[in-house]
Every structure is written in C-alpha cells, then in structure tokens.
Design a protein around this nucleic acid. Structure first.
Lengths: 159, 159
DNA sequence: TTCTTGCTGGGCAATCTGTTCAGTCAGGGG
DNA sequence: CCCCTGACTGAACAGATTGCCCAGCAAGAA
C-alpha cells in the first residue's frame, strides 16, 4: 500500500508508454529487470494496479454525449435500483453518495436526443423518485492518475 | 468508428484478460493473427482504444475517499478555474456541465478529514463561488465499458 | 553477529512480436 | 461478365522479450 519513488516512476512510465515491456522499463529506470518485475507483481497483488485493460473512448464508439445524473431513490429500493442500472449499458458507472441525491451515475448517449431515451431508461424504474441531469460540455481534465501517483510517491519518500 | 462483432469481441477479450497477447487472442477468436493485429491497429488509430495504461486504484494508493464536487464559477473565470484545478493532484477529472452547477469534478482524499483539506484547496480560488460536495459511499457499478462495447457491436451488426 | 529482505547481474529455454508474402474470397464498379 | 480493391488466411523469419532460476551483495532488524 505504500508507494515509493521507484513504484511511482514505474506507474508513471507505464501510464505514458503502456506498450513498453519490463525489459525496456528496467533500462529506462536504471534498475535490474527482476526488480521491475518484482515491483510490478507487488503493485498488482497489492491492488494498486488493477489491470491493464484497454481504455475505450465512448465517443469513438458512437456515444459522444456524456452526462451525470443525480438520482433520488425511494427508501428501501436501493438494491433494486442498483440492479436495474447495472443492466443499462449506457450507465458507465454508478455511485451511492451522501448529499442532496442518493446516487450519481455517469451516462453516455449517441446524441442529445438519444440521451432522452437513456434517461427514460434509467428513470423509468419504480424506485427512482427524481433525476437531475447535467450534460457534459467540455472535459478539461480527463480522468487521470499520474499526478496523484507522483504525490503519493513523494509523500512516502518524505516519511 | 463503426465497430463490428469481431472488434467487439477483441475489446471484450482484452478487457477481461489484458495480459493476453495477439497470438493467443487470434487462437481464442478463431481468426488469423494478422487479422487481430490489423483490427487492433485500426481500433487504436480510430481512437476507439486510447491505450492500455495501468488502472490504478486510488484507494490502494492511500486515497480511499472519493467525492464529487459541483462548482459554481464566477462569470468569465472558467479558464482560470480549469487551470487551477488541473494543478491539484486530488482532482482526478473535471467536466464543465450544463445544469445547476458549472463544473463537476471527481476528488479523492486520504480520509474524510483530509477531504476537507482537498475541498479547501479546490474552493480556495477566487473564481469559485460555491461548491456542493457529495461523498461517495459505495460504488455499485465501477467504471465499465464492456456492456457498451457489446451494444455498439450489436448495433452495427443489425445494420 | 546472524537473519531477512530487496536488488543486482547473469543465463536459459520458450514464446511472442513485427513484418512480409502469396493466395483466397466477396463486393462494387465498369 | 470481368477486374479491382480490401480484408482475411496461413506461413515463414529473425529478433526481442518473457518467465524463471541462481548466486552474490548490501542494509536494516533481531
């Protein structure tokens, strides 16, 4: 769970050039191959690195519209709503939250018009009382992890 | 930009077993290696597959708390706020949206107490008028893409 | 001091990658 | 009806990488 500088450099390097191999990494980082391999194994079994799945762009798949919906759930219907939303492909992720809503989900759609269909699909379920949708216009900071990894590595080093 | 069944199967296979090689994929899919290779190249140059970066779990890095903050921005300060937020490592992504807020960002923190620090960091900037934060409790549907890929593949096939 | 842990540097066989080639097949256009 | 293009197959090759193992070494812990 603790990340040191070397771990950080490995992750950052991997994030920047995913196709790179262990051997090439060891060369760039100036350490032995076995070390990189051991670190990677550890990071993965630690769960720090979940995997190396392909990062798919919904827009390129034909779903250029992204939206966030805040849902209010009828008491006690949480589990049903979760199960329902899990069946909708356009629901990319779902969180239960504190605050004004009960759940927050990320949606994608083929167009603004299509978004209506998706929202109907999402909301057309008994347990959902109300939904407030915010359509994403720009994405100035796409999902990123590198700065956090760097900070985590720094923090440990300072210990 | 159009995804056919084979493309879909490649992506799904890759998502399920990322460490798999092109050769093994071709065996599983029952097509020639060159075909898989060509498809992959196309998917990547299309932008459908952005890359294969490591999926890092912030919780395992020591940031188990996730939150979404809805920000209201003072007119004309958008660019400054974007630049400001981009410098905060705990801001994992940022969107500009329609609706009640102007921006929505995903935050992580080391603890609920630490979240206060992060929020102060985020909000402690002139252009931000107000921030409403929702702390994530559960994540019933983690960020996923497979169902959407499958649907996209189906859709094209029906054409 | 002795033990444990992590890193180094090396070596090995097996495997995969990148690339190229010729041949086949289906669909579109002329 | 024929030709061309694009996509897929099956095969081959050299070069590089992987997974795995080992012994030596250094630093910190007991």
């Amino acid at each position: 769970m603790a990340i040191d500088q070397l771990d950080g450099r490995i992750i950052v390097l991997l994030a920047r050039e995913p196709r790179i191999g262990v051997l090439e990494m060891s060369r760039r980082l100036g350490v032995a191959r076995g070390t990189v391999q051991a670190r990677l194994d550890r990071l993965q079994s630690n769960g720090v690195i979940r995997g190396f799945g392909p990062q798919v762009d919904p827009a390129a798949l034909g779903y250029p519209v992204t939206a966030f919906a805040t849902l209010q759930i009828r008491q006690g219907q949480g589990a049903d709503v979760r199960a329902h939303l899990a069946t909708v492909p356009e629901v990319l992720e779902l969180h239960t939250t504190t605050g004004s809503g009960d759940m927050l989900c990320r949606l994608v759609a083929r167009s603004n018009a299509d978004l209506q269909r998706v929202i109907d699909l999402v909301v057309g379920f008994d347990g959902i009382v109300r939904a407030a949708t915010a359509i994403v216009m720009e994405n100035p900071v796409p999902l990123r992890i590198i700065p956090l990894v760097e900070q985590a590595a720094q923090d440990v080093e300072r210990t």
